[in-house]
């Protein structure tokens, strides 16, 4: 890659630049700031679309009464049961149970507080679900 080929495509890095290694006219390596590259932006968006799809599936399940609000927060924070269990310091089995509406409704305040702390929200906001989820990138395309 030559210095003048270093991509400056912008978008997901906001005002950021990353460093690219490229060769100058004499063939020597130089460090060049890059505003981003369209192909890597594209696959980054694809990764977010996967997360967004999982979150909307979670919201549907919650609205149908099949899951507790914890499922939304878990997916929103890009976690699975195993990772969430590590963060709250409980067994996977317990966390899995708390993802069901009935056991969730019976949770003690201390346990709710542990979840809320991991998700960095006050405990009384655990049940607050957004009508529309904001993502750091445009996730317009639909993925199955």
């Amino acid at each position: 890659m030559y210095r003048d080929e270093v991509p400056q495509d912008g978008a997901i890095l906001e005002q950021w630049h990353e460093i690219a290694y490229a060769v100058d006219e004499e063939g020597n390596y130089v460090l060049v700031p890059s505003a981003g590259w369209e192909p890597s932006n594209l696959v980054n968006v694809q990764a977010w679309e996967l997360i967004a799809a999982q979150v909307s599936r979670a919201l549907e399940q919650i609205h149908r009464g099949e899951a507790s609000p914890l499922l939304y927060h878990m997916e929103r924070n890009q976690m699975d049961v195993g990772l969430l269990a590590r963060y709250v310091g409980m067994s996977r089995w317990r966390v899995k149970r708390h993802l069901k509406p009935r056991p969730y409704a019976a949770l003690k305040p201390e346990v709710r507080a542990r979840y809320a702390d991991v998700f960095r929200i006050p405990p009384h906001k655990l049940e607050e679900l957004p009508a529309r989820v904001e993502w750091p990138v445009e996730t317009e395309r639909k993925l199955k």
């Binding site: 890659m1 690219a20 390596y29």
Partner: peptide, 26 residues
Amino acid sequence: IHLGHLIRMQEEIGTGGGGFRFIYAA
């Protein structure tokens, strides 16, 4: 999705491009 994942591993921030091949050339 698998293809996109492969490209992400190769190009996402922190590689300097081309799956670290350019930094190794330097």
